[in-house]
Nucleic acid binder design. Structure first.
Lengths: 198, 198
DNA sequence: CTGTACTGATTGAACGTTCAATCAACAACG
DNA sequence: CGTTGTTGATTGAACGTTCAATCAGTACAG
């Protein structure tokens, strides 16, 4: 999932991509309008011609990323729900390898925390959680219909996995050790084996 | 767990308590040295006489809080490990009721996120995770020895619960809906019933 | 007299945002 | 065809605010 914008893209989209790259490079805490401006070839103040301000831009950038995610994840064929589930989990837990994705994950958690003060962000992450959880629940439902999974509550399983992955993301980007990681993975798979897999 | 400092306390501790209350009141994002100064009766600039700076003060405040936590939690008699475990979980999941504790939980997540840029914070939360996980693991171990719990890996169970609670904390302070909460609670207890309870 | 605790004023930097001015494209009109 | 008016994109400079940190000076204890 690489994001780029050639010169043909509209200015507004160029700015969105610039914000994305600035997030990758600096994280949210060190993100300034100036640094976003450095990531594209026009003037920094032009941003205010296309967006109401910093928050407006970042919110649009989040929507941009979520659409990107929804586009790639949605409409899986659901041939192998078990591997869909496990590779989704693995993708989160093994993100340390890619430095950019790792930084981006940190930025996303930082942005999520802004929901505390800002209702716009809160609305976004409410929707974001819904999208991700529904994708997970759909996978579980498909597995039940395939007979690969036993009867269970797909939404509850999805909510639990998602919450566990949020916790894992936070620990990944904020703590040093990784002894917890294999433990959590093992227990999560044991939970799935007990409660979900047929 | 109420924190206060009467006039007899040393100035350094008064400042720590002031920082704690400022965190409760404003959250980390809106926390300034000035606002910490408002929370105690001496001059704001006095802070720099007792601490190297903002980061130094907040780190000391975190240590202060962790010691407080370790003091109250440690040395439980472990008579009823099952209820110890469940009330710990419930305490996190039901924090919305207490506005101050809720704000503080948000602040703690915000502070945790600083580990991304700041090694001092990272070291603290490494230790903090260790303390909490060890407390949980001790409870599980006690349960196994009591015969209330079946044979399992106490550290792995502790890591999983702790990660799930971190994720829950983040969702609690950052999202609106709470449909996920009862789902997660139910699945978590089902996980415990399958993997831990005898 | 010496050092420690403490204070109020001040500094300097960073940052989001605004704004007047310029430029390029294009349509209308005589 | 050439002039003029209009609109949106773009720029660089500047403003106002916030905030962490510093500093010179005062009070007081030993």
């Amino acid at each position: 999932m690489t994001i780029s914008a050639d010169e043909s893209a509209g200015t507004r989209e160029q700015i969105l991509v610039a914000a994305y790259h600035a997030l990758e490079k600096h994280g949210y805490a060190d993100l300034t309008i100036g640094r976003i401006g450095e990531e594209f070839d026009k003037s920094t103040s032009l941003i205010y011609h296309h967006f109401d301000g910093k928050d407006d831009l970042l919110l649009a950038c989040l929507e941009f990323m979520l659409d990107q995610f929804a586009g790639t994840t949605a409409h899986s064929d659901h041939t192998d729900p078990k591997s869909d589930l496990e590779s989704f989990i693995e993708q989160v837990l093994s993100i340390e390898g890619d430095a950019q994705q790792y930084q981006l994950m940190g930025s996303l958690v930082e942005l999520r925390l802004q929901s505390t003060h800002n209702n716009g962000y809160r609305a976004h992450f409410d929707r974001s959680d819904l999208v991700i959880q529904n994708a997970l629940a759909e996978t579980v439902t498909a597995g039940i219909e395939n007979g690969v999974f036993k009867q269970c509550d797909p939404d509850a399983v999805a909510a639990t996995i998602h919450t566990l992955l949020i916790g894992s993301s936070v620990r990944l980007v904020t703590t040093g050790g990784d002894g917890w990681k294999t433990s959590v993975r093992d227990e999560m798979f044991a939970y799935l084996a007990d409660r979900v897999y047929a």
